[in-house]
Design a protein around this nucleic acid. Structure first.
Length: 558
RNA sequence: UGGGGUGUCGCCAAGUUGGUUAAGGCACCGGAUUUUGAUUCCGGCAUUCCUAGGUUCGAAUCCUAGCACCCCAGCCA
């Protein structure tokens, strides 16, 4: 409803215009030709695990297209395999999709809602000679499927009559046969160079309790058969999936054409479009590897802030908006690619920089005493919450003669280019006074301050110093645990746990400005000069989301 | 030696009805502003589009032949 006056897809100002990609082109063409008046996409996870960064790309793609072209996107659970799926996963997935900020209508859909329909569609195929019940064992089926270079061989049951097939299929449904005794297969072409067309199995007998349909069924449709039907029933226009389903598309089209011819579903039928899944440097996204991280306790669970899960991202302080920007930046194509993790980090930084209030926190405390500051004195210093956004207001920060400063901000003998604190040098305490260092004695840094240098007072700017240090009044500090997260793996293309980064988490006892004591769970801040931090939704600690860009340390760090 | 895909700057990615100097982002390198060595800003960064031929006045875009990489032989999705 908003910005309907804007021309072009994206509907934003030129600067925010989204770049073209092949899926947008298909959609635009379909809209232009009138093939579709309105598009409908879908995000179809199997509820057998937690959503990760890769799913975020898919979610942003599907829901993003719907939003951009004023269509809709369904959240649909592809729950056709009761042995692997659980309600707990659907809850967590719903939670994550919501968190990413997308709406999918009144309620999520479930493939299992269409089991009756699918069953009827199967009978339709049987009646028209397009499917048959095979009674070979799984091993026999495999042996007869042929290989990549040799054609397969027909099953001895391939020519059963429709009547016989119907009877057998109904018996399968009625529980008259053991698991694995029979399977329903599409009758296509055992010699097809595309192995997926060599009479793929479409229904199997599986006595398992389904998380939604319970024990109503003992036969379940296979993805191959179920997915196109789910799309068609919902009148999905563009069914977007990953590259590995490319070879499946001929079957997708074969099935839908027959069902449409038979009047089982309506035209136009959905179109399957494949894109390259997300790969990220320094990250593993395969389910097997993620499970291993959790089960072997290399992390503290699926929502560990180091995990590339959406649950982990939330605790890490990553934002939904950051993911959306990230998805837009990496684009969509069919080329297998590996995105540099820096792009994700930068998307998060960019968003956080805009919205995170500034605070001061000392992560590696070193005591600083201002020798000429009034004994026991203290005062409140006003600091802006955001240097570029005065509308975010200001806050008072208590100051006194005894402060915590960052250990790395002091060097007894300054290295080349170091312009922070060292004997004889002056720096400004951020939004406070200019101090001159007199040296370190007994592990405490000493200095004197210039009473007329207080920020905001007349003449304060007369002091020209290069260094600007954050600080926290020792007497007023809020001590808290802060976890400094870094990449989970130390190599760009991690293979497994052998590549784990031993320093992926550093826990420190930090001294924070008192306002941080009232941070709400999940609230995000920029700790000046350090990075972005989020108050952990689960406890009183803070998690580092991402550090600031730093053009100094990298060059000089050993 | 089957089938399906993909190859444009370090990493992504526009561009594909053939037509001036091959978008943009990230990274990187300069420089300006800056009470965050942050942000912001300005500038630099592919005579070249997997390779080799060919067609053409003109090709990343067309043709031919190669090469590289990814996916497919679950009663998983």
């Amino acid at each position: 409803m908003s910005n309907s006056a804007n021309s072009g897809p994206g509907g934003k100002k030129p600067q925010a215009a989204s770049t073209s990609n092949f899926i947008r082109q298909i959609v635009e063409a379909d809209l232009a030709t009138g093939r579709h008046a309105k598009i409908l996409t879908r995000f179809p996870p199997e509820p057998n695990g937690y959503l990760h960064f890769g799913h975020a790309k898919s979610i942003c793609l599907n829901f993003g297209l719907a939003a951009q072209y004023r269509g809709a996107c369904n959240l649909r659970f592809d729950d056709t395999n009761p042995e692997k799926e659980e309600q707990a996963y659907v809850d967590s997935i719903i939670d994550s999709v919501r968190w990413l900020g997308y709406e999918y209508g009144a309620a999520p859909r479930y493939a299992s809602d269409y089991f009756d329909f699918m069953y009827r569609a199967a009978e339709h195929l049987i009646e028209h000679g397009h499917a048959y019940v095979d009674s070979q064992s799984a091993e026999q089926m495999r042996a007869n499927r042929g290989t990549l270079t040799e054609p397969g061989h027909a099953s001895p049951h391939r020519d059963r009559s429709p009547a016989e097939n119907l009877t057998l299929f109904r018996e399968m449904r009625d529980g008259r046969h053991a698991d694995g005794a029979h399977v329903l297969r599409a009758r296509i072409d055992m010699a097809s160079p595309n192995i997926n067309l060599r009479d793929p199995a479409i229904y199997r007998i599986r006595r398992a309790t389904h998380h939604r349909t319970g024990d109503k069924w003992c036969i379940y449709p296979m993805y191959t058969f179920a997915h196109p039907i789910e799309d068609a029933v919902e009148r999905v226009t563009h069914s977007i999936c990953t590259l590995e389903f490319e070879d499946q598309r001929p079957f997708y089209d074969w099935l839908l054409a027959r069902l449409a011819d038979g009047g089982v579903i309506e035209r136009p039928v959905p179109q399957q479009i494949e894109f390259a899944r997300l790969n990220l440097t320094y990250v593993v996204l395969s389910k097997r590897k993620l499970i291993q991280l959790v089960e072997e306790a290399h992390v503290e669970g699926w929502d560990d802030p180091r995990m590339p899960t959406l649950a982990g991202a939330r605790r890490r302080g990553y934002t939904a908006e950051g993911f959306r920007r990230f998805a837009e930046r990496v684009g969509v194509s069919k080329a297998n690619s590996v995105i540099e993790f820096a792009i994700l980090e930068d998307a998060m930084r960019e968003h956080l920089n805009e919205v995170a209030p500034r605070r001061m926190g000392v992560l590696d405390p070193l005591k600083l005493v201002i020798d000429n500051y009034p004994q026991g004195g203290e005062e409140l210093l006003e600091q802006p919450n955001h240097p570029q956004k005065p509308e975010l207001g200001r806050r008072p920060v208590p100051f006194s003669g005894e402060l915590w400063i960052e250990r790395e901000d002091y060097q007894e003998i300054p290295e080349k280019g170091f312009f922070r604190l060292y004997p004889g040098n002056s720096v400004r305490l951020r939004f406070g006074y200019v101090i001159e260092c007199t040296g370190m004695r007994d592990g405490v840094v000493h200095c004197n301050y210039h009473p007329d240098s207080r920020s905001g007072t007349p003449g304060a700017d007369a002091y020209k110093v290069k260094g600007n240090l954050h600080w926290v009044s020792a007497r007023h500090a809020h001590a808290a645990e802060v976890r400094l997260y870094d990449r989970l793996f130390r190599v760009a293309n991690p293979d497994g746990v052998a590549d784990l980064n031993p320093d992926s988490r550093r826990i420190v006892r930090a001294q924070l400005e008192p306002a941080l004591g009232e941070a709400l769970p999940g609230e995000t801040f920029q700790f000046e000069r350090h990075g972005y931090f989020v108050r952990d939704p689960k406890d009183a600690g803070f998690n580092r989301t991402v550090s600031m860009r730093d053009s100094w340390t990298p060059r000089n760090a050993g």
